[in-house]
């Protein structure tokens, strides 16, 4: 029991939240162990933010229980919140303070011992690349730096669970890469929950994935399972003189053919099959004029469509 207590940093069971008659989040359960990064994936309005607000005590769940390192968030919110660091979608920054003042305020509010505050702020500034902007007003910083300050306030008190709501939104590619590296690094010591609607982001940093759709959990597994699930299953095929979708669909192992344009097709493979070789052989034999063959990066949308359809079929 005590072993489990130290390993499991966050556990939520049966979380449900209603806004009037509308159910924003329905019966979501999740468990996170120390050192894990959990990706929370979903389109806008899927209930990601609502779930995160509940996990951080900003919103009371209509039903369900949350415990942080074995402390019940609803019964003892102050003790549980001390173990959480939260970066909401819009970073909660006081524009009129400078970075040092703001981080000092964060350490005070999170009850970091007086003697440890200076050290904690220096370390977090180093980690988030804020070492040179300590005396600048937050309001004058660029969006990327403001986002880093937002992350810094979430981790300055060394919380057990770090919850980041769309941390890379609005950043340029270089900043996104830096923030992702930072998140991976955080994953070593803390448990991290990350929400996003960008699939590659989840692939890049997460160990576990949960996909939300209309407030329901439609997928929950490790990242490797998701990778298998969504890559290599479809290819884009370009043929100068195509034989028609039926002929392509007739190739053994092809599940579905969809024409993107007159000459380009999206070919979906049946589970566990890879008929690429077959398609190339037939193209050469029948003179289809193959000019393009590449694995289609299936978008998050495809994964969703698939998952939600599977859900409905079940």
């Amino acid at each position: 029991m005590s072993d489990q207590g130290t390993l499991t940093t966050l556990s939520a069971r049966g979380l449900t939240r209603n806004f009037g008659a509308h159910t924003a989040v329905s019966d979501i359960s999740l468990e996170l162990r120390r050192g894990e990064v959990l990706g929370f994936l979903g389109p806008n309005g899927a209930g990601k933010t609502t779930t995160m607000q509940m996990l951080t005590g900003n919103l009371a769940p209509s039903r369900g229980a949350i415990s942080i390192c074995g402390i019940d968030l609803l019964e003892d919110p102050t003790a549980a919140k001390a173990k959480i660091g939260y970066l909401p979608e819009i970073p909660p920054l006081y524009r009129e303070l400078n970075v040092d003042e703001y981080l000092l305020l964060a350490t005070k509010l999170h009850r970091v011992a007086r003697s440890a505050r200076g050290e904690a702020i220096a370390v977090v500034k180093q980690r988030c690349g804020l070492a040179d902007v300590g005396r600048k007003l937050i309001g004058t910083l660029s969006k990327g730096f403001q986002q880093r300050v937002g992350i810094a306030q979430a981790i300055v008190h060394e919380p057990d669970v770090v919850i980041l709501d769309e941390p890379t939104i609005g950043l340029d590619p270089i900043q996104i890469r830096e923030i992702r590296n930072l998140i991976r690094e955080l994953g070593g010591k803390h448990s991290v929950i990350l929400s996003t609607h960008i699939l590659p982001e989840v692939e890049a940093v997460c160990d576990q994935v949960q996909i939300l759709h209309h407030g329901n959990l439609v997928y929950s597994d490790t990242i490797n399972a998701l990778k298998e699930f969504h890559s290599g299953r479809t290819i884009l095929l370009g043929l100068r003189s195509p034989p028609g979708a039926e002929a392509l669909a007739a190739v053994p192992g092809v599940a579905q053919v969809e024409s993107v344009s007159a000459t380009v097709f999206r070919v979906q493979f049946a589970a566990g099959e890879d008929p690429t070789d077959q398609i190339v052989t037939r193209s050469v034999k029948n003179g289809w004029g193959l000019f393009q063959l590449n694995p289609a990066q299936s978008s998050l949308e495809d994964v969703f469509v698939h998952l939600t359809q599977r859900e409905e079929n079940n």
């Binding site: 951080t56 909660p92 524009r95």
Partner: peptide, 14 residues
């Protein structure tokens, strides 16, 4: 309105 209330409410403060 500035969405900074979250900063206080997420902190271990009643």
């Amino acid at each position: 309105r500035n969405q900074t209330m979250v900063f206080l409410i997420s902190a271990p403060v009643s």
